[in-house]
Design a protein around this nucleic acid. Structure first.
Length: 949
DNA sequence: CAGGTCACG
DNA sequence: GACGTACGTGACCTGC
């Protein structure tokens, strides 16, 4: 046996985070949480036991991070800037970790302003130079750079949680390159935990491939020039500097000052007294017993550690620790538990309380949260650590209420809700959902007010709106997110419930299958949260998520539950009236055409108009079909085609009937008697909400007949509807953002903005010039083109160009705003609102002109439309507390229509509520943003939505 | 399921 | 030289 020295360096800080996540929340006799300490202690115990083995330590030291800044912060202030604070029941364990180390009489290295990794690297190299072998007790990927041999002295790593050694082959397997190139791979990948940028969109796979192919980082970056056009190429070229900075950040500092010479790390056995005292203090009785016996294997010894938790910990992921995210075990649907007894349910709920963060998903009988019955719910606590709790499953025909239906063993519904409620309402436990607004509504209808919440869908939207990965798509649905971020394919709902006529409700799904599907959702949601949430600060999206969108989730859920009353009888009368009129017009059209045909078919209509009847008109689009839209028909009408006017009227009425008067009656909820829309928080790339089932954001208003439909939206007896509109908010924002003094001044003075524009452009204001100015103003907001403006104004395109030139000359701020916005979007890939909301434009540099120009127009509009959306969202989030403060807690906010909020309130409260609503809306940008224009708010009230305008 | 059309901001 | 021609949505209808 050689007398070769072998130094063990324990990465204590990394270990305790992992132990914290892995182990159950034990407490010592004093009530201090000690779960992580216990894990740490058993780990040291195990190392100490190896003392006499061949490969065991002759020297050992524990290295801890001490708070402070390292050299990395000097070159990159954002380094580790997004680290969340340590969980509050881990904080008191840090000093205990030191106590534990001292109890083992082990040297402890803890230097201010030096990171543990650098200290470990320095000691490891120093020992290696002396010909010692070194084992680094850690699984930190950054440290893998050190692995290897110099002159017969080896550095390897030991992951005690997985009990495996990491040497060159293991590193090569993980990174696809030799250890000395690991830093280059890391530089490309980046690290969201430490806030190391890397190259966005380049993950471990691409990074190792590039480095393996080109040999090093510089060569890999240089190769981008020769690559075929691709996302990757763009990213490599654009973010080269980030990668180079990252390379410096991931490089370990190997020449720190050594606070203690290596020789002092010599192990001389563990004196039993201090250790015994420590074990006793914290109630680690089984270890204490082993110590008394002088032998034994600490890893089996625990009376603190419930057997189940031990098992779960050992099988489950390393943990929720970030460095190990890619090491999660694959989704294993057989690992999920179907909870069928109260005892097991209480166990899960206890564990969820301890975990402080739980993924929640409800399974129901309907996609409509306001009609859905709760069929079951799932909880997720970690990778493959998830359960499904069936509540309303049944088999056989008749439905869950059928007394003949067979029901599997399930927890009693009311009892389950009773134990679930404290968990879901606890301030101390974060509930994570994918589109959790849905679950909020379902559960609110069960009497549970879920809070606080996170939503993986919204987090994704706030970082990645508009982004589309090649081939995968850019949506924010769970299946897509799982594919994109976890490389996992989710079980499809239709594989569980079938599709079309054969579809069954989730309650009919057998429990084993239901458990696989439902618990997987919770598992995947938990994983997505881990991956996405920590990216928020890195992507600069924390502000928008925390200050705009996250607070909005419960607010919008509440609005959906409120719904709005519609006058069914009035809608019904309109439907009848529209039916009669369309029938009459249909006859007239057929007569004029000389044949029966389907007027609602653009194909048939086009053929009748342009072939049979011989009107002139062009083909359009790839389909080769005649266009028969409004503008075409209006042109024909001017040319004397009476049939065109009839078709227009027919179209208008059949649209109003099918989309509104018929559909809205159908949409009345039988339980509440009101119409409940569903808002999508991720529907519009710009950050606007969208409304579906039914869409209450496109209720007619522009025509007299259309307004009849608005009249059917009414308050309850004794109440009124109040509509509060931002006036010209997008133009105001344009005036602010583009810094146009004339327009700012006009808004400040309360002038008619289109008239002011007309005065600036034409020198005089009349009906005609004001109308033109109005068109031009809107054209600006939407990204102008000479042809587009020409089409709208009915002028030639060179004349339109002159108008545009005049506009830019009068308002040079607008031109430079557009220029600067486009330049920024071209280089960064995204636009930004005043509140930091990003919208990505992946086609902004497309070679396809139409594609590129389309992106350019959208990119000009997005900051303005998006800022407006941010502002009204902030107003919405503040509205309820502001009203409550004014003693108006009963005022109900019902609808949002982009620049308008609709409320229902007792008539007598209008005078008190109006100024509160106006103030909240007018001041909604503050204090985050101070606008140079006032935000005007117009308020109206009435006995219908129409009357409130 | 895509395309055309049209309702809204 | 052709491309399409104002931004953002959702619902309904027809016809493949």
């Amino acid at each position: 046996m050689s007398d070769k020295q072998h130094l063990y360096l324990v990465d204590g800080s990394a270990y305790i985070f992992r132990a914290y996540h892995r182990l159950p929340p034990l407490t010592n006799p004093e009530g201090t949480p000690v779960g992580a300490v216990y894990g740490y202690t058993t780990m040291l115990w195990k190392l100490a036991e190896d003392l006499d083995k061949a490969d065991g330590p002759t020297h050992l030291a524990v290295v801890l991070d001490k708070s402070g800044k390292s050299f990395r912060n000097e070159i990159y202030p954002e380094y580790k800037a997004n680290r969340p604070p340590a969980p509050e029941d881990l904080v008191p364990q840090f000093p205990l970790i030191r106590d534990a180390t001292r109890a083992f009489s082990l040297p402890l290295i803890e230097e201010p302003d030096v990171e543990a990794d650098d200290m470990i690297a320095t000691y490891a190299r120093a020992a290696q130079r002396q010909g010692w072998d070194v084992t680094i007790v850690s699984s930190d990927k950054d440290l893998m750079q050190l692995v290897g041999e110099v002159d017969g002295a080896r550095i390897d790593m030991l992951d005690t949680m997985k009990s495996n050694r990491i040497y060159i082959p293991e590193v090569e397997e993980k990174f696809g390159v030799a250890p000395e190139l690991v830093g280059d791979v890391l530089a490309l990948m980046g690290d969201s935990v430490d806030n190391i940028p890397g190259i966005f969109g380049v993950g471990p796979k691409t990074a190792s491939k590039l480095i393996a192919e080109h040999g090093n980082l510089t060569a890999a970056l240089d190769s981008a020039g020769e690559m075929k056009t691709s996302k990757l190429k763009e990213r490599l070229l654009e973010h080269r500097a980030d990668a180079e900075l990252s390379r410096v950040l991931v490089t370990l500092k190997e020449d720190c000052d050594l606070p203690m010479p290596l020789e002092e790390f010599k192990l001389d056995g563990v004196p039993p007294e201090p250790l015994a005292a420590f074990l006793e203090t914290h109630g680690f009785n089984s270890l204490l017993k082993r110590l008394g016996a002088g032998t034994g294997s600490p890893e089996r010894a625990n009376n603190l550690n419930p057997a189940k938790a031990e098992r779960a910990g050992a099988e489950a992921s390393p943990d929720g620790n970030v460095q190990d995210l890619p090491e999660w075990p694959a989704v294993d649907r057989s690992a999920y538990e179907c909870v069928q007894t109260m005892e097991r349910l209480e166990h899960w709920i206890e564990r969820a309380f301890a975990a402080r963060l739980v993924a929640v998903d409800t399974e129901t009988s309907s996609l409509d949260a306001m009609q859905a019955d709760l069929v079951g719910f799932s909880l997720g606590l970690g990778p493959n650590d998830a359960c499904y709790v069936p509540l309303g499953h049944f088999s056989g025909a008749g439905g869950s209420d059928d007394m003949f239906a067979e029901k599997p063993q399930q927890v009693d519904r009311e009892a389950a809700i009773a134990v679930l409620k404290p968990l879901l309402e606890s301030d101390a436990v974060i509930k994570v959902g994918q589109n959790i607004k849905y679950d909020l509504n379902v559960l609110a209808r069960c009497g549970i007010e879920v809070a606080p919440v996170h939503d993986t869908m919204v987090i994704s939207f706030d970082m990645d709106a508009g982004r589309s990965e090649d081939g995968i798509g850019g949506g924010h649905g769970m299946d897509e997110l799982a594919a994109r971020h976890l490389g996992h394919t989710c079980m499809k709902f239709k594989d569980v419930c079938g599709t079309g006529k054969k579809a069954i409700s989730f309650g009919e799904v057998p429990l084993d299958k239901a458990t696989q599907y439902a618990a997987e959702d919770a598992d995947v949601t938990w994983r997505l949260y881990q991956v996405l949430h920590r990216r928020l600060p890195l992507d600069g999206a924390t502000q928008v998520y925390e200050r705009v969108d996250r607070p909005l989730i419960p607010v919008v859920a509440g609005m959906e539950r409120e719904g709005i009353k519609v006058d069914r009888a009035a809608l019904s009368r309109l439907s009848e009236q529209f039916a009669e009129t369309t029938a009459r017009i249909e006859g007239e059209i057929h007569e004029e055409a000389g044949e029966q045909f389907t007027i609602g078919s653009p194909k048939q209509l086009g053929e009748v108009l342009f072939e049979k009847m011989g009107y002139k008109g062009g083909k359009k689009g790839k389909s080769g079909q005649y266009s028969t839209d409004q503008s075409v028909l209006e042109r024909l009408a001017i040319e004397g085609a009476t049939i065109a006017n009839k078709v227009l009227e027919y179209r208008q009425l059949s649209k109003l009937k099918s989309t509104y008067t018929d559909a809205l009656q159908e949409a009345i909820n039988p339980d509440t008697g009101r119409v409940h829309t569903s808002y999508s928080l991720v529907g519009a790339q710009t950050g606007r909400l969208s409304s579906t089932d039914p869409n209450l954001q496109n209720i007619p208003i522009r025509t007299e007949i259309g307004r009849e439909i608005r009249k059917a939206f009414v308050p309850e007896e004794g109440n009124v509807l109040l509509a509060a509109d931002y006036s010209q908010i997008e133009l105001r924002l344009a005036a602010h953002m583009a810094d146009v003094p004339e327009l700012r001044e006009a808004f400040a003075n309360g002038e008619d903005i289109h008239a002011r524009t007309a005065r600036e452009m034409y020198g005089e204001v009349d009906r005609d010039t004001r109308a033109k100015a109005k068109t031009i103003n809107f054209a600006i907001l939407y990204g102008i083109s000479r042809w587009g403006l020409a089409g709208r104004l009915g002028i030639e395109s060179d004349e339109a160009q002159e108008l545009i030139d005049t506009y830019f000359k009068r308002f040079p701020g607008i031109q430079s705003y557009i220029h600067a916005t486009l330049e920024s979007v071209r280089s960064k890939g995204y636009s930004e609102t005043l509140f930091g909301r990003k919208t990505w434009f992946p086609r902004i540099n497309s070679k396809n002109q139409a594609e590129r120009q389309g992106s350019e127009r959208a990119a000009i509009n997005a900051p303005i439309q998006g800022t407006s959306a941010d502002i009204i969202k902030r107003a919405m989030a503040r509205m309820k507390p502001a009203l409550a403060d004014a003693g108006l807690g009963h005022v109900r906010m019902l609808l949002q229509v982009h620049d308008e909020l609709v409320f229902e309130l007792p008539e007598g409260d209008v005078a008190a509520a109006s100024p509160v609503i106006e103030k909240v809306m007018a001041e909604a940008a503050e204090p985050a943003v101070t606008l140079s224009v006032p935000l005007g708010v117009e308020i109206g009230t009435g006995e219908s939505w129409d009357a409130a305008h």
